[in-house]
């Protein structure tokens, strides 16, 4: 048995890069999908709206861990050969799409109806209204909760350790198995997560405070 050393710390920091990588990949893919979810939910077509609502109900009623299992085992069944990292990224992207989509939809809905009417009276098409009038205003409102959500996303990447992705939590488990100093190891792991998440939380709060002044 050996003790927890600086080398282990470096190993954990190294693995934290994969936590960041998984977070960024899921954020980019999930963000793209979120636009789709948001548009489905805002759509005037009832069928699209029902599909959007169904997606959101599924995403918010099933735990991320179960989404991860479904993606991990489901992809394998359908004959697509993806790594644990790919399966985790897919599950976390879906999770991101649902929550970000809802945040963005509520930001757009929070705008006054007059904004749409004013844009329409300038003979703008629906797309133009969205791009030139609605989205620039909604972004300001959507930014603080979106950054707050990224914190949730970073924390949920820890679930990828369960299907074997070597990220921060998995690395922590490995060091723990070698040293048996569980308390110290997981305290350091927590601190590393905190170092990633806390600045984002503060940024989210600052932006929100600025919104209301």
């Amino acid at each position: 048995m050996r003790t927890f050393t600086t080398n282990d710390l470096l190993f954990l920091i190294d693995a934290a890069q994969y936590t960041l990588l998984l977070s960024i990949a899921s954020l980019l893919l999930g963000g793209l999908l979120a636009i789709g979810v948001c548009l489905l939910r805002l759509s005037k077509d009832p069928v699209s709206r029902i599909i959007g609502t169904a997606i959101v109900t599924l995403g918010q009623g099933i735990p991320p861990l179960v989404l991860l299992f479904l993606s991990y085992f489901g992809l394998a069944l359908s004959g697509i050969n993806v790594s644990a990292f790919g399966a985790s990224c897919l599950a976390l992207s879906f999770f991101t799409a649902v929550y970000l989509g809802e945040i963005w939809r509520s930001s757009i809905n929070a705008l006054h109806k007059e904004q749409w009417e004013a844009a329409e009276s300038l003979a703008m098409s629906w797309g133009q209204q969205m791009i030139y009038v609605i989205v620039p205003q909604a972004i300001k409102m959507a930014l603080p909760p979106s950054i707050g959500f990224i914190v949730q996303l970073v924390k949920n990447t820890s679930l990828a350790s369960i299907v074997g992705v070597l990220e921060l939590t998995k690395a922590g488990q490995m060091v723990n198995n070698a040293t048996f100093q569980s308390f110290e190891v997981f305290l350091v792991v927590s601190l590393l997560y905190f170092a990633i998440c806390f600045p984002l939380s503060v940024l989210s709060r600052r932006l929100e405070a600025r919104l209301f002044t």
Binding site: K155, L159, S161, N176, S182, F186, S190, Y193, F194, C197
Partner: peptide, 23 residues
């Protein structure tokens, strides 16, 4: 509040179940 909200529940659970046991 900040310590809990900025770390994953999975790691918190390990810290309580495995970490406290090691102490």
């Amino acid at each position: 509040v900040e310590a809990i909200r900025n770390t994953p529940l999975l790691v918190q659970a390990f810290l309580i179940y495995l970490g406290l046991a090691s102490l």
